[in-house]
Design a protein around this nucleic acid. Structure first.
Length: 348
DNA sequence: AATGCGGGGAC
DNA sequence: GTCCCAGCATT
């Protein structure tokens, strides 16, 4: 029996049919959900999704919104390039595609933030077009089902998996009308049964034909990523408040970590922070409180933040040579894109 | 082909 | 603590 033949009946009774983007399942909502779900789990996304579509219910609304609004709606979700690309893609659709997402794989991939798998997921779910997806779930399912060796992050292994995914999607017994369900079913299987740790093979519709299950190797496949030790970095952050309780925020550079987001002024070491403070503020009659350090992990390094809080700060008249500093009232913080650990700190 | 890019859930 | 998640863009 084919994968689709086993998967579809399982999906009908055990798949997820109540995800927010399934009702209604419009191209815009499918697209937004796919972008939010890149490297992000469903449980994390649902709250952000509802808030986002309430604020920006369709593609033209997204295209017309200021980027700052989009980043504020994204604040805390991570990988902020997704939000910038989403916004840019919406604008491109208004200019080039009449305000709608194109129903074409190449036109979709040409949009920023949409790669091969995301384009396929949009086309198959929104329109029922026959395209294979290859996300983390499908990679894990196929690596086990076929007993594919090697870390799926390597191009050679990924090539293999794409070919397998395409051959299963080409199944002639898989009706056109069921492409949205087949696509969803693959992800549901990976997310609910064929999980990374402790998969529930007992309930799996594919287990009779699964190489990893047959050979007792589900714990070894897919091959894990080679280990890395993450470098450790430190930074000082200044939490400055003026006499009115407003907080001084600084917009980060357009590239790099937390690009274009608003954070507390951040420095590599205490000396640099002190110099900046003396040059740009009048701190004569104030004293600092040093707050507990904050540990934060990125995918490629660890960062320890050392916050220092000052009250009653006034800036000197001539302040630096850029426009990236802004006094922000506490109740205005929700309107800005602020990294999660900084927002947590300010809310504490 | 390798690296940069967040935040949190699961263990 | 570690690992990795509905990946893509850049180099």
């Amino acid at each position: 029996m084919t994968i689709a033949a086993r998967l579809l009946p399982w999906f009908d009774s055990h798949g997820r049919h109540d995800l927010p983007w399934q009702h209604p399942r419009t191209p815009y909502r499918v697209w937004l959900s796919e972008i939010m779900l890149q490297q992000t789990q469903v449980s994390t996304v649902t709250g952000y999704f509802d808030r986002f579509v309430t604020a920006l219910p369709d593609l033209p609304a997204l295209a017309a919104a200021p980027l700052d609004d989009v980043l504020a709606l994204w604040s805390g979700l991570g990988y902020y390039a997704r939000a910038r690309n989403l916004h840019a893609a919406a604008k491109a659709c208004v200019e080039r595609h009449g305000g709608e997402l194109p129903r074409d794989i190449d036109a979709l991939v040409a949009l920023p933030g949409i790669g091969r798998s995301t384009a396929a997921a949009i086309l198959s779910q929104a329109w029922g077009d026959r395209h294979a997806i290859l996300d983390g779930n499908v990679k894990r399912v196929l690596a086990r089902y076929h007993g594919i060796e090697g870390w799926p992050g390597t191009p050679a292994v990924e090539r293999k998996l794409w070919l397998l995914a395409e051959s299963h999607t080409a199944d002639s017994t898989l009706p056109d009308a069921r492409l949205p369900d087949y696509t969803q079913a693959q992800m549901d299987l990976g997310a609910t049964l064929c999980t990374r740790a402790n998969p529930t093979c007992l309930l799996c519709p594919l287990r009779d034909d699964c190489v990893a299950h047959r050979e007792g190797r589900t714990a070894e496949l897919p091959t894990p990523r080679p280990g890395r030790t993450l470098p450790q970095r430190e930074a000082q952050v200044l939490w400055l408040e003026d006499a009115n309780g407003r907080i001084l925020l600084q917009q980060r550079p357009p590239a790099g970590i937390w690009a274009s987001l608003w954070t507390l002024p951040q420095f590599e070491d205490a000396d640099t922070a002190r110099d900046w403070l003396q040059k740009n503020t009048r701190t004569d009659s104030t004293t600092a409180t040093t707050l507990p350090a904050i540990a934060h992990a990125f995918s490629h390094y660890k960062l320890t933040l050392h916050p220092h809080r000052w009250h009653g700060i006034a800036l000197r008249d001539r302040i630096g040579d850029n426009e990236s500093l802004r006094w922000v009232a506490r109740n205005e913080l929700t309107k800005l894109g602020i990294p999660a650990p900084i927002r947590r700190l300010l809310d504490s």
